[in-house]
Design a protein around this nucleic acid. Structure first.
Ligand code: MN
Ligand code: MN
Ligand code: ZN
Ligand code: ZN
Lengths: 137, 137
DNA sequence: GACATACTTTAGAACTATTATAAACTAGGA
DNA sequence: TCCTAGTTTATAATAGTTCTAAAGTATGTC
């Protein structure tokens, strides 16, 4: 994904392509494989890879803006370090979770299929379904 | 479950049956259906139902002790309110989660069966598998 | 029952992830 | 260039949880 495409992605989401947003978007979206990260780990990566300054609040703001625009997912998992995980894979999918390394690994949606599933409680509908497979060594 | 049984449960876990632990254990374990709760909600219930005082730290200490003893589970879900859920159902099972009410509902292990499952990444083993079915209204 | 001691509770401080604030800065249109 | 709404920033505030160390208690021994 080249620079112009990043700019388009931001602009078409109603987000002004500021220096910080462009750097974060380049870092997150110019890659082949899924990237799972925390705010802290992203901050460190950005400090290493760029000369731009990122206030912590800007990282949070940007990630939430990207999430709201549908460019990022937040993983609803509570790891041992009590931080939110973000996920560049925005398709429906599942995860392996290694609690020793706090690492997430994608499982494609079609790698898990069900024989039997319960129906939603009365008056409610199923929005989506997430499987977390906890790993040990 | 009567008083003596509660005392046994505590003692056989190496936990002295203090006033606070006995009250919490009675409140949590003398019931038929699964109880999902947060530290905050438990604190409120205890204040309403008993005359015993519970320092916040004691509630945390006690829940962690019960968890360590295998009498409670912690649900590794990050809800919108960033609090831990505890679960009196200590069997392997799954959950519906209603993010609007922050409510968990049990799904028995045998209500979900799989056609297809991925194998664990190299060098790792599957510890367990949790399904969370997100609900909407 | 009194005593000793390890375990437990407690109030409050500390910690940590995240969000709010409000002042300075900037992208983009006129 | 100028204006303005949108954005970044440093810092304070918030909230869930854990830590501290002093006071209290359960339990074994005499
Ligand atoms: Mn740098
Ligand atoms: Mn009371
Ligand atoms: Zn993922
Ligand atoms: Zn449950």
């Amino acid at each position: 994904m080249k620079k112009t495409s990043i700019l388009n992605k931001l602009r078409s989401s109603g987000l002004r392509p500021t220096k910080q947003r462009v750097e974060i978007a380049k870092f997150l979206f110019n890659r082949d494989k899924t990237f799972h990260f925390t705010v802290e780990s992203l901050g460190k990566h950005l400090a290493k890879k760029t000369t731009t300054k990122f206030a912590l609040a800007t990282i949070y703001n940007t990630l939430h803006a990207f999430k709201k625009a549908g460019h990022l997912n937040e993983v609803h998992l509570r790891g041992k370090n009590n931080t939110t995980y973000f996920d560049t894979n925005i398709s429906n999918h599942h995860h392996f979770y290694d609690s020793e390394t706090s690492e997430l690994i994608d499982i494609n949606d079609n790698e898990i299929t069900f024989d039997k599933l319960p129906k939603a409680p009365n008056g409610k509908t199923i929005k989506n379904l997430e499987v977390i497979i906890n790993l040990k060594n």
